[in-house]
Design a protein around this nucleic acid. Structure first.
Lengths: 341, 341
DNA sequence: TGACATATTGCAAACGTTTGCAATATGTTG
DNA sequence: CAACATATTGCAAACGTTTGCAATATGTCA
């Protein structure tokens, strides 16, 4: 244990100047004679001196840390590549702006205290729920927060947020499947307290409405985003008297579970059933067959969220509202013509 | 912005007691009259008071934060599920002991300053290099550190670390392939400054030596762990005059790249070539064919690493040395009899 | 050289806690 | 009730910085 790390006092003493001068020299403030600054820096380096961040935070009223909250909805939810990609984007921007990342994989019990105890200067919630009252209250109290993906535009909640083109890409995906002749399209979505689920489902239904087709609601299954749920709901769909001829999976983990179910029944994709994944995994091109995918730009979402939060922290406010990034429908081989039954 | 958050003073004033009493009441220290404690807690809660963590850290000389360093070797290395699983394990234990996690996805330029600035109480390095002098120096200076996977036992570096049974499981995997008739076994490993690579390669060679067989070193390729490298080295192996009849891939990302290469040549697994993955992804059972895998218990590794570090922080030292967790060879369908050529 | 402007430096308060010690209140025992 | 033990409380120092302000040094100009 380094029992007594050098403090600014030690540097000052050795350099023969006052604390204040050392502080100014180290922080590159104006008004310290060049030769003195040089000497101070040299001595600081010799002594292996680093400013104590807590002391600094105490007086400056900022810690230089961004809190990242990831809900621990289930034991393994964090394995969703969505989160690693988001973190990667966040980290890139945070580092560039000299912020550290504090990661909390939580059932969000103490989001608020993380801020109130001033361990972080602001908070990013990844995969927020639309009834996350703690988050909403934090925002209303003027605390810097950013939500991914955010809240329905009509909800009146103006928390800065970053989303991707869900409506557009789901609309396009469903239209594409219909173009292949599919009419019975399954959709395994996530919990309906997620804006992702709400928005994607709305787009799904709108295609049917716009084309004057009836949407069989029994083919829509609300899951908890997990692999297990993907597996079991896919099973339920396949057990129907009239099973769907194609299925859309809401995220990467659901996709894996659903595929597992399909494989275990020895069904062929896309001959028996077409599969379309929504997600950010870049493994899908390696699946057999390679999966048709709505690719969500999660790294970019992370980067954007970090930029928004830093702006909110430093400018004191952020009126960017909701930012929407483009997403792509990548057509591969897991979707094909509707089998004739 | 909450411009003036309540401090301990505000609580003390309103409760009509001194700061010290409030402090003792809130921290559950002995020697404060039950009714006073109750009143203080009630008022603190009414005022939405939380102790300022920097002030606390300053006097207590601990911040309650664990630093997690993940090397950013390449832009997308962090996508390796190895890291999410490790983080999941770390988070579980850290939370249970009331530590926060500070995540740094770095080219480890400022590991040391993270500690010297007292932003963390200790540091866990995931996927350390064996010549990481900063890490070694931190350890020698008595700073709490844990390395995953650590250093070669013979190196004389006693940094606490957590590894899995690489030698044993690779030995078993190679023996298994040989049992299927394979003699030309490719091995795409990672950088040789990783104990993972060194140890796994040694076990690989030992099987050949023990069986009195010659090991063709041209089938061993040193990569940078990336998907891209997996793709190109797999290509090189397949381009050989006598390509291997089976291949072992060092980690999840290499595996994906190698499979991509194999698929793009329209080769069949395992008829044309057997593939054996080392990693922690639980997607492999869903691949077509499902992949034979040495499953590394990364969540457990993360948990153990966190426990070691917390012990080192709180006890002031940790003499556990290197902990080795069991790993499994899971035989699926990507490995089969050696094709006759 | 004197008068002023400006650059450099130091002093000391402030940030919000915890904690050793002394002071006081309360309880117990003979 | 005295004498002591013990439980409760408050005082004030300490943690390591930053920063406004005053003090001093240095430079400039007439």
């Amino acid at each position: 244990m380094v029992s007594n790390a050098p403090t600014i006092k030690d540097v000052a003493l050795k350099a023969g100047v006052s604390y204040s001068t050392v502080s100014r020299a180290i922080n590159g403030k104006k008004g310290v004679k060049p030769e003195i600054r040089e000497r101070v820096l040299k001595i600081a380096s010799e002594l292996n001196y680093f400013p104590h961040s807590s002391a600094k935070a105490l007086v400056q009223k900022r810690v230089g840390v961004i809190g990242v909250i990831i809900p621990r909805t289930s034991e393994f939810a964090f394995q969703n590549p969505f989160y690693s990609n988001a973190l990667l984007g966040l980290s890139t921007i945070a580092n560039a702006h000299e912020y550290q990342l504090m990661l909390s994989i939580n059932n969000q019990v103490d989001i608020a205290s993380l801020y109130y105890r001033r361990q972080v200067d602001g908070i990013i919630v990844i995969a927020n729920r639309i009834h996350d009252n703690t988050l909403i209250k934090l925002y209303e109290d003027g605390i810097p927060v950013v939500a991914v993906p955010g809240f329905p535009p009509g909800s009146g909640i103006a928390i800065p947020s970053v989303n991707s083109e869900n409506s557009k890409s789901v609309y396009r995906a469903v239209s594409y499947l219909m173009g292949l002749g599919h009419r019975r399209i399954g959709f395994i979505i996530g919990k309906m307290d997620s804006w992702y689920s709400i928005e994607r489902l709305a787009a799904f239904k709108k295609v049917f409405a716009d084309k004057g087709l009836e949407c069989d609601e029994s083919l829509i299954r609300e899951s908890d985003f997990s692999k297990t749920a993907g597996y079991s709901f896919m099973g339920q769909l396949l057990d129907l008297d009239q099973p769907p001829t194609s299925v859309i999976c809401m995220n990467d983990t659901i996709t894996l579970g659903a595929l597992h179910q399909i494989h275990s029944r020895n069904l062929k994709v896309p001959d028996d059933i077409s599969v379309l994944a929504i997600g950010c995994s870049d493994m899908y091109e390696l699946f057999n067959p390679p999966l048709t995918t709505i690719k969500t730009p999660v790294i970019e979402i992370g980067k954007t969220a970090a930029k928004l939060l830093i702006k909110a922290i430093e400018k004191g406010s952020c009126d960017e509202g909701q930012i929407i990034l483009p997403s792509d429908l990548i057509i591969r081989e897991s979707t094909g013509n509707c089998p004739i039954r």
